[in-house]
């Protein structure tokens, strides 16, 4: 009856050998291909560094002007533009300007990459049920696996630095835009699609004239979520050597610097709120034509 008392686990020795074997071969792999993979990510790294330098080299009043201008263009709201400008001035006043620029650079590049990679994947998923069945569990894993579990192999492969940080952010932040692109396209009114068919639209015309425009509200919600999740990863990314607002937060955890943590934390929150409100307002504005009202 002992089989019921104790789980018939693999022998200790075997288990250790298995782990060792996998660890060993991964180490081999990272030794053999680490450099190639690093080279592959080199353009991304250069873009990130370039953008960060650009932000830091630009005079601060100009940055504040640009931030306020973008906020206004996105939301058409003076209040929001003013709020964004005031937040950035406060951030600068409390000595967090450089870290904030690094973080903005990281988030921007991460978001652009998520959109460029995520939307096409979402579109492909929406066209094939089989692909959807295959990708959905991958997205689930990406969102739920403890971050450190995939951080470790990434660090083993690429060392610490900006690129592994960026990859960590991408893994965590990409799923929403993929999911919502897929969902949005699947939710497009079947009647309108039928009309497109009836007028002889080919698949490409259907995609660009009907499916993507009608899915845009959902795609946009996905982008918004992606930005928020990328910001949430800032502190974790700093653990593997990414500069930015996460770094002081990390320091403050290690040394119990209450105020330092609070200030940098608030800066992250301010960025999040600005990004969120502006992108949401912009998304809403895209939908203006859906509002009724005759002869408006």
């Amino acid at each position: 009856m002992s089989i019921l008392d104790e789980f018939p686990a693999m022998g200790r020795q075997d288990l250790r050998d298995l782990k060792k074997g996998i660890d060993g071969s991964f180490r081999e792999f990272s030794r053999g291909y680490g450099e190639a993979i690093e080279n592959f990510f080199d353009p991304v790294l250069r873009a990130l560094v370039w953008f960060e330098k650009l932000l830091l080299a630009t005079p601060w009043p100009l940055i504040i002007l640009i931030v306020a201008g973008l906020a206004y263009l996105g939301s058409r709201s003076w209040k929001l533009a003013l709020g964004a400008a005031v937040s950035f001035i406060l951030i600068g006043y409390f000595g967090m300007w450089e870290d904030t620029m690094s973080t903005v650079a990281l988030i921007s590049v991460a978001t652009i990459l998520c959109i460029v990679i995520g939307i096409p994947i979402g579109i492909m998923m929406s066209r094939s049920n089989r692909l959807q069945a295959m990708i959905t569990p991958i997205l689930d894993v990406m969102q739920t696996i403890p971050i450190f579990v995939y951080l470790l192999p990434v660090v083993m492969l690429l060392g610490i630095g900006k690129v592994p940080g960026l990859i960590a952010v991408l893994v965590y932040a990409m799923p929403p835009v993929v999911r919502l692109t897929n969902l949005g396209i699947r939710l497009v009114d079947a009647e309108i699609l039928e009309a497109a068919d009836a007028f002889g639209a080919n698949p490409r015309q259907k995609l660009f004239d009907v499916q993507i425009p009608l899915a845009l509200p959902n795609i946009f919600a996905g982008v918004n979520q992606t930005i928020m999740m990328a910001l949430a990863m800032v502190v974790i990314a700093s653990m593997i050597g990414v500069k930015g607002l996460g770094n002081p937060v990390l320091q403050s955890i290690q040394n119990q610097y209450l105020t330092l943590g609070l200030m940098n934390g608030m800066a992250i929150v301010a960025l999040a709120i600005i990004f969120d409100r502006v992108s949401q307002q912009y998304g809403k504005r895209l939908q203006k034509h859906r509002e009724g009202g005759h002869g408006v």
Partner: peptide, 12 residues
Amino acid sequence: SMVFQKFALLPH
């Protein structure tokens, strides 16, 4: 060409 019951116009 076809005309639909629920119009099926492009809202955007």
